[in-house]
C-alpha cells in the first residue's frame, strides 16, 4: 500500500510539469515542484520552438533517494488559428540511474484565451515496475486579461494509472503573470502540491 501510494504520488506530481514543455527558440525554462513526497527541479532549453532538452533533478522524500532525468520533448504538431492553438507533443526521459528507469509518452492540448483542453498518455518504467498513466484536463479562464495582467485558470484534471485502474479527479488553479507561472492542485490522496515555472 505504501509503495503503491508513493508511486501514485510520483505519477501525480510528475504529470504537472508537462505543461509548457517547450519554450521559444533560444529560450530556457526553470520549473520547480514540491510536496510532501517529492521535490523536483527541471530546467530545459529550446534550441528551436520544435523541441527542448533538459535535466530534471528529483529528490524523493519517501524513498530517501535522488535521481536525475535527461529529458527530450518534441513538438510533433501545432495548429495556429486566429483564436486558438493546438499542440501535440512527444516526451521522453531517461534516468541517470540506468536504462531501466525511463518514461515516454505523448500529450496534447487545445486552447483559446477562454478554454483549455488537454490530454496525456505516459509509460513509465522505474526499476522493475512498469506502469502507464493517462489524464484529461479541462480549464476555463474566468476573465480575459490583457498582456501583462495577472491571468487565472480554473481547471479540472482527471487521471488514471494502470496500478489502481481508478480515475482520480481534482481541481487545479493556475496563475501566471509576466514570465512566472504558478499552479496549485489538490488531490485527496496526495493533498496539496505546488508547481512554479519561470521562463527566461
Amino acid at each position: 500500500m505504501g509503495i503503491k501510494f508513493t508511486i501514485l504520488a510520483i505519477l501525480f506530481v510528475s504529470s504537472n510539469i508537462d505543461a509548457r514543455p517547450i519554450s521559444y527558440s533560444g529560450g530556457s525554462t526553470l520549473m520547480m515542484f514540491s510536496d510532501s513526497m517529492k521535490d523536483s527541479v527541471y530546467y530545459h532549453y529550446s534550441p528551436t520552438y520544435k523541441y527542448s532538452v533538459g535535466i530534471e533533478q528529483v529528490k524523493n522524500n519517501y524513498f530517501k533517494d535522488s535521481s536525475s532525468y535527461l529529458r527530450l520533448t518534441y513538438l510533433a504538431n501545432r495548429k495556429n488559428t486566429q483564436n486558438s492553438q493546438r499542440n501535440l507533443y512527444f516526451q521522453s526521459g531517461l534516468s541517470t540511474n540506468g536504462v531501466d528507469d525511463y518514461f515516454y509518452g505523448i500529450h496534447g492540448d487545445w486552447e483559446t484565451r477562454r478554454w483549455f483542453v488537454g490530454f496525456g498518455l505516459k509509460e513509465v518504467k522505474k526499476e522493475k515496475v512498469g506502469f502507464s498513466q493517462q489524464h484529461l484536463q479541462f480549464g476555463v479562464a474566468p476573465y480575459l486579461g490583457e498582456y501583462g495582467d495577472l491571468h487565472t485558470w480554473l481547471m479540472v484534471k482527471t487521471k488514471k494509472n494502470s496500478l489502481n485502474n481508478d480515475w482520480s479527479t481534482y481541481p487545479v488553479l493556475k496563475f501566471f503573470k509576466g514570465n512566472s507561472l504558478i499552479e496549485f492542485g489538490y488531490n485527496n490522496k496526495t493533498e496539496w502540491d505546488a508547481h512554479y515555472m519561470y521562463r527566461f
Binding site: 527558440s25 529560450g27 520552438y49 480575459l144 486579461g145 501583462g148 491571468h151 501566471f176
Partner: peptide, 28 residues
C-alpha cells in the same frame, strides 16, 4: 496562435534582441 500571455513572452524577448526595435507590446 497567440492565445496566452505566457506563450507570447518569447515574442517580446525575441524582438528585444533586435537593437533596431525601440519598443514592443502585445495586444492579445
Amino acid at each position: 496562435g497567440m492565445v496566452c500571455d505566457f506563450c507570447a513572452r518569447g515574442i517580446e524577448k525575441t524582438f528585444q534582441k533586435d537593437k533596431r526595435v525601440k519598443k514592443i507590446d502585445v495586444d492579445l
